[in-house]
């Protein structure tokens, strides 16, 4: 392995990638459903759902992390039930993934929702008259049309998860090799004398990932606009 990063730095990078990947993949189906519900369906409590989804965007991350600790901690109402089933979030990398997923969720829902709203429902109607059931219409018309938006949302969420710090450190602490993600590692390196070199390298990686994700998601968003306008 390349020796331009120390083993601790490698651990942090690897952990961050794993946490972000799982956070993105697991929240994607729920984000699709939520985006559809918000874009298309009228139901009581729609505004409340909208508020809940966007809450992590405006709450101080430390509050989100604390609330996660309260509910998903080993003594929390959900956490204790899950513990009996052998699933533990608190102070594990899975907890870091959960925190990252919740913090990234609003971004993902927002990107998908915009692309769902851009789809002309009359195209879906036309597909219905050609014999496609609702599930088939979704798979063959809706999904292909929103796909660039979905990918853009996922990329953004991934980048956001890579950078998540406040909720993560509150919920799962900062255990090297266990829960020490890239931002936590940067924070830790800055606390010790002589850690600036390590911090600088990790900062460079963070900036590169974030910029790359922004450029990629912008490019995909432009594609969805062009694709839907082609009707």
């Amino acid at each position: 392995m390349a020796d331009w990063l120390t083993p601790t730095e490698w651990d942090a990078l690897r952990l961050s990638l794993r946490v972000s990947l799982w956070a993105t993949l697991c929240s994607l189906p729920l984000a699709l459903l939520t985006a559809h519900a918000l874009a298309r369906w009228r139901f009581p409590g729609r505004e409340v759902l909208n508020g809940l989804v966007h809450l992590p965007l405006v709450l101080p991350p430390v509050v989100t992390g604390y609330l996660l600790l309260l509910t998903f901690g080993t003594r929390g109402p959900i956490g204790s039930v899950l513990q009996d089933l052998g699933i533990v979030f608190a102070f594990r990398w899975t907890g870091a993934a959960l925190a990252a997923a919740i913090m990234a969720f609003p971004l993902m829902v927002r990107a998908i929702r915009l692309s769902v709203e851009a789809v002309d429902p009359r195209l879906e109607q036309a597909a219905g008259t050609l014999g496609a059931s609702r599930a088939w219409v979704w798979l063959t018309v809706t999904l292909p049309l929103i796909l660039p938006g979905v990918i853009a949302g996922a990329v953004l969420a991934f980048a956001k998860a890579m950078g998540e710090f406040g909720a993560t450190i509150t919920f799962v602490s900062n255990i090297p090799g266990q829960t020490q993600t890239l931002p936590s590692a940067i924070y830790a390196f800055l606390q010790v004398p002589g850690g600036e070199g390590s911090a600088a390298r990790l900062v460079a990686i963070s900036v590169a990932v974030a910029m790359g994700a922004l450029i990629l998601s912008e490019w995909l968003a432009r594609r969805v606009a062009r694709r839907v306008a082609g009707a």
Partner: peptide, 16 residues
């Protein structure tokens, strides 16, 4: 989708 009626819409509605 189970009526088996072919609809030709005013605006075509081709899948882009």
């Amino acid at each position: 989708h189970r009526r088996r009626l072919g609809v030709i819409f005013q605006d075509g509605r081709l899948f882009p």
